[in-house]
Amino acid sequence: MRRLLWPVVVLVLLLALNVFFTPSFFSIQVRDGHLYGSLIDILRFGAPLILVSLGMTLVIATGGIDLSVGSVVAISGALACLQISQDQSVFAAVALALGLCLVLGAWNGFLVAGIGIQPIIATLILMVAGRGLAQLITDGQIITVNSPSYKVIGGGYLLTVPFGILIVLVVLAITAFLTRRLALGMLIESVGGNAEASRLAGIRSRGIIIMVYAFAALCAGVAGLMISSNVSSADGNNAGLWIELDAILAVVIGGTSLAGGRFSLGGTVLGALIIQTLTTTIYSIGVPPETTLLFKALVVTAVCLIQSPSFREKVFRGRGRAAPPGPAAEEKVRVREGVRP
């Protein structure tokens, strides 16, 4: 819980800053049977990022990285909208889009685990080629659809709650159950900690790596459906653009190490909410659009520095200050130098 302290503090500070500029920021109302409010908007618009970040968390936990999730987001929305525009059923379009995403994710995992290509290179291939594939699917145009059933995925409501938030809760619950209530999470962490040692211990590390990349692509595919259905259109060029970088930042802010090993799903959700809240804050305080990315980078950098124990040690306690050695420390020094008491 201690590693989640600083993300929680940063999120609370960002929310408090919004209250300063918008006094009714915490106000939640029910209109036409739907929940409305700034907090609901943060959760609704942040839902695709949370999904992508969850998949990215498991990939990073194995010591990998996936730069292709943004392209997969575009491919998923493009293929689903294309099928719906050709009078295919929404169920068939969604199933086909998610099936393709699973294949693309498994391909990434095969390149990494089967062939041995570095994860950043293997996924960079799909990052570039996938964006081109999305534009081929849309023929370089923005495909617009008019399907109330498809609109529900990203813009609908169920029991007054945005449907996208419910999707995130379901995916998060399933992921938490599989990784924390079963042995899968421990296996993923062991592969990320030492893949060779886990293989020698009898763990099928290749299968686990392929599985987590497929899961990351599936999460990105669902996010792509949410994004495209929310606007009832698919843009192969701009949909999901740079979402992979926000996902990586969310995972890092949440306390998961890029070196692999232990991971935190709760921390990742907090990280994604921080990024989405930061985006909302930028618009609330009137930061000029041309400096938005710079402002965002500075805030994220500050958050990462605050989370760093070594940075806090140097800033708050002083580099040259050291506590006087205790009796145990003095005894270790005498033993190391061969001096008998």
Rank of each mutant, 00 (worst) to 15 (best):
V94E: 04
P309K: 15
N146H: 10
F21Q: 05
G254N: 10
R2I: 08
P341Q: 09
L294M: 13
G132M: 04
I203A: 09
L43P: 00
L17R: 04
E189P: 00
L96V: 09
L159D: 03
S198L: 03
C219W: 10
F25M: 06
G286P: 05
I167M: 12
D66N: 11
K314I: 03
Y213V: 02
L178V: 05
I165H: 07
I50Q: 03
A61F: 02
L54Y: 06
I306Y: 15
D41N: 14
T279H: 12
A78N: 04
A61W: 01
T123S: 06
V287F: 14
T179I: 02
S233N: 09
L218K: 05
M1K: 07
A297D: 12
L166D: 09
G185M: 06
I50D: 01
F91M: 11
V52S: 03
V145I: 14
A183M: 05
V69L: 10
A220P: 04
V231D: 07
I282M: 11
Q118N: 08
E331Q: 11
Q86V: 00
G109Q: 09
L11V: 01
T144F: 13
E196I: 01
L245M: 14
G116K: 07
I209G: 01
I174V: 15
G286C: 05
F263C: 10
S27K: 14
E330I: 03
F263M: 08
V252T: 12
G105R: 02
R312L: 07
S76A: 15
A322V: 07
R317W: 09
F316Q: 10
G267D: 08
L15Y: 09
I285R: 12
A113I: 00
Y157P: 02
L35K: 04
L111F: 09
G70Y: 07
S38I: 00
S228A: 15
G192S: 07
I243T: 12
I306L: 15
L278A: 10
A122G: 03
L182T: 11
V333S: 05
L17F: 13
L54P: 02
G236V: 02
V73M: 13
G164C: 13
S76I: 02
L79W: 09
Y283P: 00
A214V: 05
